[in-house]
Design a protein around this nucleic acid. Structure first.
Lengths: 241, 241
DNA sequence: GCCGATTTGTCCGTATGTATC
DNA sequence: CGATACATACGGACAAATCGG
């Protein structure tokens, strides 16, 4: 529900760019034009544009205009060798992601866990391991660790479906910030046992800390991906200074 | 040279947080306090804070305050298993990164290259392959493709040192936006021949497009990393809508 | 090279809304 | 309910970069 005006403008411009109305390499209408078009202040327009800069859709050029640098997916094979992300592939092929719970327990955070996750030592946490299947193939091994105090009432049945739906819809907690680290690691015995690694001897590993709207970290997750179904996109803009 | 006021405040707050003056989990001084402290307007403070939000340093809580969610490197082993990035490791150990040029040529972009890089078909480009050594070990295979029209005068000697220094200092061109994709791929025969992969049969691959201050893409690069020396950090904040 | 028009970049002050306590 | 704190939005002013005449 984008109720904020800058957010509506942001979404509208984004969709317009994606629709191809502003071609790659061309200039957007000037800020003054957009101000009259959207009937708002300059700050509001600039805020909407800032969002598109973050997304890697546009790049403002001082004194000149705002260049569109968004490229539709077909034109760039940034989907290297036809690789798509797990979600993309699942959505495109309309395949259900099947989840199997391997472990579900409540434990206090020991020293190793506290160090790895950032949770306080001794805090009670849910320790959950799940395997994600796509098209019948086991491709992702998730290890989720939730602060029990902030995510009460979790069950293996919920973990079988969607923990995030439960957290957001049932508990009404919002996920705001997520810090992630991507590494590539050797496949462990457990990886080989649970996943279909084919001839890979390593995996893409995404470790993440998740914070709620109160700024409290309530989750630490490690996702171990079979390489074929992993791809991560990012846009960086240089900071001055 | 941070001449902008919001950037100075941003940098000052960042350093203050890194120094530990505002502890993880605590609240920052209120915006009004910061306004008087830095003698500036509310917009300027909010802009500085926005930068810290992007960096994953803070998270504002409506009606309550701004929570510090920055954790010093020691407290979280997000440097999983002691892994650091190539640059971090090189800097910390004060090791020189040695670069060896494998290939240096000028070619027109063929169809495959055009599709992979996003360059126009037929454009003349520099095609450069380099191996990066750290502590004597060959760990990264870089393939750089530069638009010849925008990066004139490139030589193998420059590639042996730093292409970016040449681009920024000599040509005076600024790198502004960088779009990256991270995947994990099987090691090719060339990877195995040129790099010290030990027993890994795959690598971390970073593909990136780089845009200058004119919003024109002038570089496409693929970096193939030996897994031990690859780690990528990222902070995401949920957008509304 | 200069000048003026256009366009983006920075900064300020103010008002109002909304969430927390 | 009131005080505090963050969120959104408006309008204005000046600086800096670009471009055309």
């Amino acid at each position: 529900m984008p109720k904020a005006k800058y957010d509506e403008i942001y979404t509208d411009l984004k969709q317009t760019i994606e629709a191809g109305s502003y071609a790659y390499g061309s200039l957007l209408p000037s800020e003054n034009t957009l101000i009259t078009r959207y009937d708002c202040s300059r700050n509001t327009i600039r805020r909407a544009l800032a969002g598109l800069v973050e997304d890697g859709y546009i790049q403002p050029i001082h004194g000149k205009g705002v260049r569109v640098i968004y490229q539709p997916a077909e034109r760039t094979s940034f989907t290297v060798g036809g690789i798509e992300s797990f979600q993309e592939s699942a959505q495109r092929n309309k395949l259900q992601i099947v989840t199997k719970v391997i472990q579900f327990s409540v434990i206090p955070a020991d020293e190793q866990l506290a160090k790895r996750s950032g949770f306080p030592l001794g805090e009670e946490v849910y320790y959950i391991q799940r395997v994600r299947f796509l098209d019948g193939k086991p491709l992702i091994l998730d290890t989720n660790i939730f602060l029990k105090a902030l995510v009460p009432g979790l069950t293996a049945e919920i973990a079988e479906r969607s923990i995030y739906t439960y957290i957001e819809k049932e508990l009404g907690m919002q996920i705001v910030t997520s810090k992630r680290t991507i590494t590539v690691e050797h496949a462990s015995a457990q990886d080989e046992q649970l996943l279909d690694l084919e001839d890979y001897n390593c995996l893409a590993v995404v470790s993440s800390q998740t914070f709620n709207s109160d700024g409290v970290m309530f989750e630490y997750t490690q996702s171990r991906h079979q390489p074929d179904y992993f791809s991560f996109h990012d846009t960086a803009t240089r900071k001055k200074g």
